[in-house]
Simulated scan of single mutants.
Amino acid sequence: MNKLLISLLVSIGLTGVAHAAGDAAAGQAKTAVCAACHSGDGNSVVGNFPKLAGQGEKYLLKQLNDIKSGTRMVPEMTGMLTNLSDQDLADIAAFYASKKVQLGQAAADQVELGQKIWRAGVADKGVAACTACHGPTGQGIDSAAYPSLSGQHAQYVESSLNKFAKGERDNDPANMMRDLAARLSEAEIKAVSQYVQGLH
């Protein structure tokens, strides 16, 4: 069932919905305030702020729109996007997508379990492999707005998975991440979060 759902969502994503083309050069000038948390090139140095560098443009634009509309609640972002236009958001997404993510390193004691979950899922819990939507090297599927996770901070990934598991974050398509995260144990969430930090 999970594989069928994932296939359907990928197919829908691949057909896509057109959005305003972003201008990375214009976006750079619009990200000055973003640099305080995400750094100038989108490679945040604080683990609870996500790296935006190298993230898929379509995914970034969706998150920006969701945060602006209140569909996704991020207290640190309150009011930050209020006065930005659709074109502004598209330009910001294009700018960060054009940057290269700086990879991290996974905790050695978490790699084995994290890799197993990433590549094969957890069959007895009905958890599909992460590679189905995020790709073998964590690059994501931008046409479907599935995020790149390669090099993302483990702290941010772990926090996001916990929020999905508790229903505190609910802007995932068809409850997919909420359903999967809720089936993982704390140890499994920690392991897969560490694994993606060094994935490339």
Score class of each variant (00 low, 15 high):
residue 1 M to I: 13
residue 4 L to G: 01
residue 7 S to D: 14
residue 8 L to N: 04
residue 8 L to C: 10
residue 11 S to D: 12
residue 11 S to Y: 12
residue 12 I to L: 14
residue 14 L to F: 09
residue 15 T to D: 07
residue 20 A to K: 12
residue 20 A to G: 14
residue 22 G to T: 06
residue 23 D to S: 07
residue 24 A to E: 10
residue 26 A to P: 06
residue 28 Q to I: 01
residue 29 A to D: 06
residue 33 V to P: 01
residue 35 A to E: 10
residue 36 A to T: 14
residue 38 H to N: 03
residue 40 G to K: 09
residue 40 G to Q: 08
residue 41 D to V: 03
residue 43 N to L: 08
residue 44 S to I: 06
residue 47 G to Y: 00
residue 48 N to L: 10
residue 49 F to T: 01
residue 50 P to Q: 01
residue 50 P to W: 01
residue 56 G to Q: 05
residue 59 Y to W: 14
residue 59 Y to F: 13
residue 66 D to W: 03
residue 66 D to V: 08
residue 66 D to Q: 03
residue 68 K to H: 09
residue 68 K to D: 08
residue 70 G to V: 05
residue 73 M to T: 15
residue 73 M to Q: 15
residue 73 M to S: 13
residue 77 M to C: 09
residue 77 M to N: 09
residue 79 G to E: 04
residue 79 G to W: 09
residue 79 G to M: 08
residue 80 M to G: 00
residue 82 T to R: 11
residue 83 N to Y: 00
residue 83 N to F: 09
residue 86 D to P: 09
residue 87 Q to P: 06
residue 87 Q to R: 11
residue 87 Q to D: 13
residue 89 L to D: 04
residue 89 L to K: 12
residue 91 D to A: 12
residue 92 I to M: 02
residue 92 I to Q: 02
residue 97 A to M: 04
residue 97 A to Y: 05
residue 102 Q to T: 15
residue 103 L to C: 08
residue 103 L to Y: 08
residue 107 A to W: 03
residue 107 A to K: 14
residue 108 A to R: 08
residue 110 Q to N: 07
residue 113 L to S: 08
residue 115 Q to C: 01
residue 118 W to P: 05
residue 119 R to Y: 07
residue 120 A to W: 04
residue 121 G to E: 07
residue 124 D to W: 00
residue 125 K to Y: 10
residue 126 G to I: 12
residue 127 V to I: 13
residue 128 A to F: 11
residue 129 A to L: 11
residue 129 A to V: 06
residue 132 A to V: 09
residue 132 A to S: 15
residue 135 G to A: 10
residue 135 G to M: 15
residue 137 T to Y: 04
residue 141 I to D: 03
residue 143 S to G: 12
residue 144 A to L: 09
residue 144 A to C: 15
residue 145 A to T: 04
residue 145 A to H: 07
residue 149 L to D: 03
residue 150 S to W: 01
residue 152 Q to Y: 01
residue 152 Q to D: 02
residue 153 H to Q: 03
residue 158 E to F: 10
residue 162 N to Q: 15
residue 163 K to G: 10
residue 163 K to W: 07
residue 165 A to I: 07
residue 165 A to E: 10
residue 166 K to I: 03
residue 170 D to H: 15
residue 173 P to K: 02
residue 173 P to H: 02
residue 174 A to R: 03
residue 175 N to V: 08
residue 175 N to M: 06
residue 176 M to K: 00
residue 177 M to N: 00
residue 178 R to W: 00
residue 179 D to A: 09
residue 182 A to T: 06
residue 182 A to K: 13
residue 185 S to I: 08
residue 185 S to K: 08
residue 186 E to V: 13
residue 187 A to F: 03
residue 187 A to V: 12
residue 189 I to E: 00
residue 189 I to S: 05
residue 190 K to E: 10
residue 191 A to S: 11
residue 192 V to G: 08
residue 193 S to F: 02
residue 193 S to Q: 04
residue 195 Y to A: 07
residue 197 Q to K: 06
residue 198 G to K: 10
residue 199 L to C: 13
residue 199 L to D: 06
residue 199 L to M: 11
residue 200 H to A: 15
